[in-house]
Design a protein around this nucleic acid. Sequence first.
RNA 1: GGAGAUGUCGCGUAGCUGGUCGAGCGCGCACGAUUGGAAAUCGUGUAUACCCCAAAAGGGUAUCGAGAGUUCGAAUCUCUCCAUCUCCGCCA
Length: 434
Amino acid sequence: MLDIKFVRDNPDVVKQNIKNKFQEEKLPLVDQVLALDKENRDAITRASELRAQRNALSKQVGMLMGQAKKDPSKLQEAEAVKAQVKAQADELAALEVKEGELEEEIRKIMMVLPNIIDPSVPIGPDDSYNVEVERFGEPVTPDFEIPYHTEIMERFDGIDMDAAGRVSGTGFYYLMGDIARLHEAVLAYARDFMIDKGFTFCIPPFMIRSNVVTGVMSFAEMDAMMYKIEGEDLYLIGTSEHSMIGKFIDQIIPEEKLPQTLTSYSPCFRKEKGAHGIEERGVYRIHQFEKQEMIVVCKPEDSMKWYEKMWRYSVELFRSMDIPVRQLECCSGDLADLKVKSCDIEAWSPRQQKYFEVCSCSNLGDAQARRLKIRVKGENGKNYLPHTLNNTVVAPPRMLIAFLENNLQADGSVKIPVALRPYMGGKDVIIPKH
RNA sequence: GGAGAUGUCGCGUAGCUGGUCGAGCGCGCACGAUUGGAAAUCGUGUAUACCCCAAAAGGGUAUCGAGAGUUCGAAUCUCUCCAUCUCCGCCA
């Protein structure tokens, strides 16, 4: 979300940015919103005048009423002034309605005007123009066949999709035994990994109110993702980012508390409305999973530094579990409207012979802060908008796919990287049941 | 979940029989005076957002947990919601 003042002063920059993002259909919105803004300011100016008059006249009434106690003839005068105020009441009421409507229209447009992208973002219309920046680790292809991840899990008696289907329906799973333990081990390891990087571990609420939901996402996203609790004003979170960013809504953070570097654990619940491709059976796309997330709220001048650090943490984490990854930079057309810059960390799948998304790191600039009224009180006492960033640390069900495929050995066992062993009871390998 | 109490400017409080209250007082903080320097003292100031103004100066509007209402006028009255505290119930 842009600053309306910025749009006023730099309409051409805003328009060029829209072109860079291949959203030509939004170009007329710029002039539209500026016209609405002008109209709105005129309405505000006029309404302020009327209110000023009303306040002045009301004060007179007060004075006259006071005097009327001694001199009853003043009562008539007071009534006359009252009538004057009443005469203007209709115009003011109409203006107030108009103000409300205009503000709503402006807000709607401002929500869809894309944030100004960083100059370093590659220009391109869709994800096929995303740029592979760098690979970390050799994408190895073993000389034995890598089965589908659920098959690997089944050899360990590690998953029961059938029971989950009976109990909860599609999109759920029972993880069991070593696989379930591995899932928890990855989470615990990721948690400690981030704590070692200086992040504060946090367990947030897993349900949030509707006003927070509408604060952090659009109606369309909400409809496609969020589960509502019946009879309550509560929604299950789709990611801990919802409650973590919600933590700061409407808050003024003292500058000395920056940067806020938090790593949060939560289960995530998603409706996942939309097509499920064949590669998405198993645990790739499900209604409930668990995730360790990292978020940073920092001074504007520090956000790019944090962005670099954050995606590198993901790379380091995956490399420490012997999983080859690459950094894929999102091009302008693939970048969500709120983001200044974003990249995915993709893990190598030896079975599919391609990389697939496991982390998504984003710098939102001040757009999220503006939208959610997150502010920082500076040293000079002035408030300003901080920058916000977020990145996946690890989402175990999806990362288990990469983990199992990359650490599977010819004999069917799965080796446990050194870093993970303390969380797996010291084991260096897990052995399939059949 | 039931009963009661409370929610005011960074903190603590006053106001709550509606008008001169955007709001008094104390503390804190900032600046200035005093001092060789400090303490103490004295003085001044001390929110946020928005609008008008080329800008500054200045002016205006809104905000006393949130929202709605009554009224010429609401911190003050009414309603809804939220939060906190106390007691009861229930529970990991």
